[in-house]
Design a protein around this nucleic acid. Structure first.
Lengths: 189, 189
DNA sequence: GTCTATAGCTTGATAGAC
DNA sequence: GTCTATCAAGCTATAGAC
């Protein structure tokens, strides 16, 4: 065929959804084929490395979208508080107001592919680094900023776990509102 | 045989470890057989309902151990702050200082067994309820206490996700220290 | 209560036609 | 680039001996 049945971007988007919802082991090729509309053999044409390559591609795309869409406002214009507020808005969009799980959670359980866990660790590190930076911009000491960034990532991940477990997105929404103060005020809100 | 090759308590303990580490789909019967020392057929004798029953049994045991070991101090003697401190100690023990994942996370991803997610929701609710109660004992208004309990569960789950993802248990340890203030002080610490 | 053996299905992955 | 057909291996689950 001249053009693919499904474009890379849409393919990766659907792949991400499957890994978010079912985790690595639960994301069977049959399920992926069903969701994407491609047969298993076609998936191997797009990802010769199989499921491992699919998961890596998903993490890489999430890194990129996170950097360019969610974290970008952190190093943009405005006061640190304003920047974190924009980041929090993007974050909420990214996770569908809390109804989507994070692949850094769903893909961090043990599998036979060790490289996956390493990638997850790097993604978390990058995420925390960006948040620590804006926290420093807000005038917090370096070490304090780092701790706040760790707190922030923890709250985000925790709120997503609660949302998935209880179908209550309230905690996620509150966390989004509290994020600016958490990352920028000198004494915890 | 007169007595089982492995006692119920130890069997459930090992089962819990497998579900924590690999999630529901990743917890294959081969792996469970290997870890427990029982053959697959023997596992079906102990759990006629198969893997679904094993996961349910794990959640039920976690509920019990949580209630009797971790949450019990919350309704015990002492000031609310002292009670939360004891709970936090037990919590840290329970999760090996952060190196174990929580089955409420690992078992909350979509599977074909819907009842699992319902059980997870109930367990989270019970956990939050116990924490909200001690928070009320500390003098916080009912609604505030509930929000603090949601925050607390979120921080715990988030810290465990970070620990699994980055192999850094620092955030977990800090969270443990901050838990008493989070649940008992009138304005967030 | 545990075992060996096995059934039947699903998995991840490959070969080759179009 | 996608497909049908196929493979070996893994999976959950069961039957029946001891």
């Amino acid at each position: 065929m001249a053009s693919p049945k499904i474009q890379d971007e849409e393919l990766l988007q659907k792949l991400t959804g499957v890994f978010q919802t079912y985790g690595y082991e639960g994301a069977s090729l049959s399920r992926i084929a069903e969701v994407t509309g491609l047969q298993r053999a076609s998936l191997y044409h797009r990802f010769p490395g199989g499921k491992e390559e699919m998961a890596e591609a998903v993490l890489t795309r999430v890194d990129e979208r996170f950097a360019s869409h969610v974290l970008a406002p952190l190093s943009g214009s405005g006061t640190p508080v304003q920047r974190v507020k924009r980041m929090a808005e993007r974050l909420s969009e990214f996770f569908g107001g809390g109804q989507c799980s994070c692949v850094l959670d769903s893909l961090s359980f043990d599998t036979k592919y060790h490289a996956l866990k390493d990638h997850v660790a790097e993604s978390m590190e990058a995420w925390m680094g960006a948040m620590a930076k804006v926290s420093q911009d807000a005038g917090l000491p370096k070490k304090t900023a780092r701790l706040r960034a760790e707190d922030a990532l923890g709250r985000i991940q925790g709120a997503l776990v609660i949302a998935r477990g209880t179908d209550d997105r309230g905690p996620f929404e509150r966390m989004i509102k509290e994020l600016p103060a958490l990352l920028t005020t000198k004494s915890s809100s």
